[in-house]
């Protein structure tokens, strides 16, 4: 599904990724964990095209996508719920969701009808969003904005979802709710790459995990294998 091969990327003169490689197989959930500044978010941005890799390849379904505009990559079936949620604050909840399906909806009229079943699916998953569908996204709570960011990504009917720190800044009870949704999506067969600060929670839902250190993958393995790694336990899993 997704292959990242020896990617180098950064911002201006500061190189963040120094040869990152990872793979996500169809139908699996892969966690990307590591300390702050290790390059997790940069990896996500390099995959989705928000950042152009200086070297290396990103393959989506076997096709190289590195260097394409993010909007092109999105239309190839990759949905990225970015760090900090990045909902469109001046648009209402439902408009945010509709824009999630932008690539396959008519531009002028009839888009609401064409997206009705997808909207229904997202509202079933997040009843709170249905209650607030006419509310401006900027007025939602952090947890609701996270649900909107995930719902918006789902609207694209993606083949692969990137979730960057879905628990960031949320109360523990909301974090549980977000992870309940992630488990539910996993049960439905969604392929996901998940960046998480809460390594423990991430490993509970993941099939496979990578640990990043200073722009490279330091350790990888199944959650069971990683839990046996004492160095890792000390550093990230508390």
């Amino acid at each position: 599904m997704l292959l990242v091969e020896d990617v180098y990327a950064g911002y201006g003169l500061s190189e963040v990724l120094l040869g990152t490689s990872l793979a996500v197989k169809p139908g699996t959930v892969v966690a990307l964990i590591g300390a702050n500044g290790a390059g997790k978010t940069t990896t996500m941005r390099a995959i989705s095209g928000l950042l152009r890799p200086a070297r290396g390849r990103v393959l989506l379904d076997g096709n190289p996508v590195q260097g394409l505009a993010a909007s092109r990559i999105a239309r190839l079936g990759l949905a990225h719920a970015p760090e900090g949620r990045k909902v469109f604050g001046t648009l209402c909840v439902e408009d945010n969701l509709l824009l999630g399906a932008y690539g396959r909806l008519p531009r002028f009229f009839g888009f609401r009808g064409r997206a009705a079943s997808d909207l229904e699916r997202v509202y079933a998953l997040f009843p709170r969003l249905r209650e607030r569908r006419r509310q401006l996204a900027g007025t939602l709570s952090g947890g609701e904005q996270q649900m909107l960011a995930i719902g918006r990504a789902l609207m694209a009917r993606p083949k692969l979802m990137l979730l960057d720190e879905p628990s960031m800044g949320l109360a523990p009870v909301i974090v549980q709710e977000v992870f309940r949704t992630i488990r539910q999506l996993k049960a439905e067969g969604m392929t996901m790459l998940l960046v998480e600060q809460f390594a423990k929670t991430a490993l509970e839902v993941a099939d496979y995990a990578y640990v990043m250190e200073r722009g490279r993958i330091a350790i990888e393995g199944t959650p069971a294998e990683l839990r046996r790694d004492e160095r890792l336990l000390a550093a990230y899993l508390g």
Binding site: L50, A69, S71, G103
Partner: peptide, 29 residues
């Protein structure tokens, strides 16, 4: 057109956050 069509909402989305718009498949260019 800006308020009622999806294209108009995309216009607004890019105004608010160019990168997030790109992630929705909206070409900022």
């Amino acid at each position: 057109l800006k308020r009622k069509t999806l294209l108009g909402k995309a216009f607004e989305a890019v105004s608010v956050d160019r990168d997030a718009g790109e992630l929705m498949g909206i070409s900022a260019k």
